[in-house]
């Protein structure tokens, strides 16, 4: 069917072929769409939804700034302090900015999980965005897929910026165990996003979503070492951090960066959070 055909009946705005003989054309039009065609529609729908959510993400300046640019900006600020570029024994021979690079990678994931997924999904539920979507042929769960895809892409860009600027501006070596970094990054994302989805599943309102997201973000970043790097933490705090996804994620990313395979305990912590939070989120998520 051509565009001209579709606009042929301006009076009703309906297509010429339909109005000409609705009785025969309608069923024909439906049966011409086999299962493969429906799968194509589902794929197209998910791509369009992801693209749309990506645009909306970029239209929220605060969200885009803090998850995309803030980590690399913080790296530049820290890197501008000459003392922070010196290698110190306290940080196991790393410079301060080298110790901070993994924290900044986790920062993006944590802020996207707690201050991105949680308020966005709770607001979508409260405003009926999810309900409207669930009234379409596309399942409302597609929104979760779309948002997680967008946030993952944002985190990858942020990671790339930190790695590239760190290397080019401050001579931070490139991650020496790229596969380990990939595994750590994926598990860090799945565990932190999983916790975000779980919180979004259980909080009753967008307002509560904002508050709980914020309230979780700061302790998460504390245990990742944003205020006191993990190497300088009292051992009790560091051990607590081993069992918290942000702490384990920072350690795993840091190990991969310096050429070690991430520790099994850290990977296990993230895997357990991913599975448990993901399972509970799937069980408890309310769409309306």
């Amino acid at each position: 069917m051509t565009t001209a055909d579709r606009t042929a009946n301006p009076a009703t705005g309906r297509t010429a072929d339909r109005t000409a003989n609705p009785a025969t054309d309608r069923p024909a039009a439906r049966t011409a769409d086999p299962a493969a065609d429906r799968a194509a529609v589902t794929g197209r729908a998910l791509r369009r939804l992801t693209l749309t959510e990506g645009r909306l993400f970029l239209r929220d300046p605060a969200a885009a700034f803090f998850s995309l640019l803030f980590p690399v900006l913080l790296l530049v600020i820290l890197g501008s302090v000459p003392g922070f570029r010196k290698h110190t024994a306290a940080l196991h021979g790393l410079s301060t900015i080298e110790a901070y690079a993994p924290i900044l990678v986790v920062f993006s994931l944590a802020i996207l999980g707690m201050n991105g997924l949680v308020p966005t999904l709770t607001a979508y539920r409260e405003r009926g965005v999810l309900r409207r979507l669930s009234a379409s042929p596309v399942p409302a769960a597609s929104m979760l897929t779309a948002l997680v895809t967008v946030y993952l892409a944002v985190a990858v860009v942020s990671l790339g910026l930190v790695v590239a600027v760190g290397r080019l501006a401050f001579g931070i070596p490139l991650p020496r165990e790229p596969l380990g970094l990939l595994v750590s990054f994926v598990l860090a994302a799945s565990s932190l996003f999983g916790v975000g989805l779980l919180v979004a599943a259980v909080v009753p309102s967008a307002k509560a979503g904002n508050a709980v997201g914020m309230a979780l973000f700061f302790p998460l970043m504390f245990f990742s070492g944003l205020w006191v790097p993990r190497a300088l933490m009292p051992s009790v705090l560091r051990h607590i951090g081993d069992f918290i996804p942000s702490g384990a994620a920072t350690q795993a990313v840091a190990d991969s960066w310096t050429g070690h395979w991430p520790g099994g305990g850290d990977l296990a912590t993230m895997a357990v959070f991913t599975l448990v939070a993901g399972f509970l989120a799937a069980k408890l998520f309310r769409w309306r």
Partner: peptide, 13 residues
């Protein structure tokens, strides 16, 4: 409108 059109096999213009 484009988003919701993409959910259907034969959307309106």
């Amino acid at each position: 409108l484009e988003l919701y059109a993409s959910f259907h096999p034969r959307p309106r213009d």
